[in-house]
Amino acid sequence: MATQQSQSIQTLLEAEKEAAKVVQQARQYRVQRLKEARTQASKEINEYRQSKEQEFKAFEASHAGSIQTVQAAIDKETEVKRAEITKQYQQNKDKVVKKLLDRVVLVEPELHRNLKKVGA
């Protein structure tokens, strides 16, 4: 009976060792799959980033000409407005100076309307 118990114990120990090996292999497999998943995700992210960068560069290249034409149109419009303002300044500067001088130099002395005459 002792040999039978010894064999049973030995069988249990071997089964436990086998179970530990299976668990260890499962852990290693899981770690390996996680690493593979991370590298695959990293690769997919890089591919997606590159495709989006290419799309952006294509968009930028297709719209670069329109940006330059819009900028040229804005510059032209600004120059026209600037020339118009300068022209109006040249036309009206003498009138403005004359009005200012008339207000400052030509003073008509008179009593203030709130001043009351004394004795009246």
Rank of each mutant, 00 (worst) to 15 (best):
A120K: 12
S62G: 10
L100C: 03
V97D: 00
I67K: 13
I85A: 03
T86N: 07
E77Y: 03
Q10D: 07
Y89L: 11
V23I: 06
S66K: 09
E18I: 09
L101R: 15
A41V: 05
V97A: 02
K93H: 00
E44P: 02
A64S: 15
K35S: 12
Q90D: 08
V118F: 10
N114C: 02
L12S: 14
K81L: 08
V23T: 10
Y48H: 06
E108V: 04
Q32D: 06
K117Y: 11
A20C: 15
L106P: 08
Y48L: 15
S66W: 02
K99S: 12
E79V: 02
A120Y: 05
A2K: 12
V22P: 00
A73T: 02
V22S: 15
A64M: 15
K81R: 13
A20Q: 11
R27Y: 13
K93S: 04
V105C: 00
V105T: 07
T69I: 02
Q68N: 04
R82P: 00
I74G: 00
E53D: 09
K87Q: 04
A83F: 02
F56N: 08
Q32I: 02
Q25R: 04
D75G: 03
E47Y: 05
V23R: 13
R113Y: 05
M1L: 15
V80W: 01
H112Y: 07
N92E: 13
K93F: 00
A120Q: 11
E110K: 09
Q91L: 07
A19D: 08
K99H: 12
K98D: 10
V80R: 13
L13N: 04
L115K: 07
Q91M: 10
K21E: 03
Q71V: 03
A15L: 05
E36T: 01
L13G: 13
T39H: 10
V96P: 00
K95A: 14
Q91G: 02
E47I: 15
Q24G: 12
K17H: 14
A26L: 11
Q4S: 06
K57D: 10
E53P: 01
R113H: 08
K98R: 01
Q40H: 09
K52G: 05
A72F: 10
K17D: 04
I9Q: 03
G65R: 10
E60Y: 06
Q68L: 01
V22E: 07
K81F: 05
I45T: 14
S51E: 00
E14V: 12
V80P: 01
R27D: 11
V107Q: 08
K98E: 12
Q40R: 06
K35N: 13
E110F: 08
V31D: 13
A72K: 03
A15M: 08
Q32A: 06
Q40S: 10
K81G: 13
R27L: 12
R33L: 10
Q40W: 07
A26K: 05
A83R: 08
A20G: 06
Q50V: 09
T3E: 15
L115V: 12
V118P: 15
I85W: 01
K57L: 04
K95C: 05
K116G: 07
A15N: 11
L106A: 14
I9R: 01
S6W: 01
G119V: 02
N92W: 01
T3A: 07
T39S: 08
Q91S: 14
Q54D: 06
A20M: 11
E53C: 04
E55I: 07
Q71H: 08
A20T: 14
Q71G: 02
F56C: 07
